[in-house]
Design a binder for these strands. Structure first.
Lengths: 116, 116
DNA sequence: TATTTATGTCGCAATATTACGACATATAAT
DNA sequence: ATTATATGTCGTAATATTGCGACATAAATA
């Protein structure tokens, strides 16, 4: 039902990045991976206050976008940040934000008209 | 069912910003408002390839976060970007991204182990 | 070999999002 | 006053997300 292919592919890609960051658990996972360079999968599940299955699902979403990846080490999996992909999306966002912010004069409630 | 209050309020707030940007229609709206300083509501509906009702819903979400606001002008409503709120969230995101990116060494597939 | 352990998969329920038509309201124009 | 116009509201259907328990798999260990 989602009509995303009606939009500019660049905006679509940026929206996918934003969606990956749109849940606090996923932000917390990224933060945790940044702090602990060891990045053992099980530790993430312990750290995040959600069930292991749910955390696993969030990990899959981050992995699908390439923001993290996992390295199998016997029984364990070490997940870690993928700096290059993160930088790529960060640059994409910066470019967008700059365009939005440097747009010159906006209304900013300067008139006495009723606002909503 | 969403267990967002289990997380750090800062991460929660950032995730709300990301969610607002997680649909290409909303990104397109922000872009359009940045380009056209006039920002007439009806024009937005014409520009975005979705029904007026749907566009209106997206506008409401952006408005709820304070990223845009509308000024009633008779029959029309002029929507426009709210630079201060956008800057606030942008700074929040930058701070987060910096923490993630400057985390030092990550694995980046340096070993010969199987990756997923 | 049997058991433990860490991860992965499946299916399901609850909730949220997306999209839109039909209708309501309120201002402007005729 | 009537009509046209722009925006707002409601209900609803389709789909996506979130969360989790139960089970499967595969490696390490006893």
């Amino acid at each position: 039902m989602i009509k995303k292919n009606k939009f500019n592919p660049e905006l679509h890609e940026l929206s996918e990045f934003a969606k990956a960051l749109s849940h606090p658990a996923r932000l917390a996972i990224l933060e945790y991976l940044a702090e602990t360079k060891t990045c053992i999968s099980g530790d993430i599940s312990d750290y995040i206050p959600l069930s292991r299955t749910t955390v696993y699902q969030h990990l899959k979403e981050l992995k699908a976008l390439g923001l993290i990846h996992g390295e199998i080490d016997g029984l364990r999996v070490n997940y870690c940040l993928c700096e290059s992909t993160i930088s790529k999306y960060r640059a994409m966002f910066d470019e967008f934000a700059k365009r939005i912010e440097s747009a010159g004069i906006k209304c900013e409630v300067k008139t006495k008209k009723k606002c909503i």
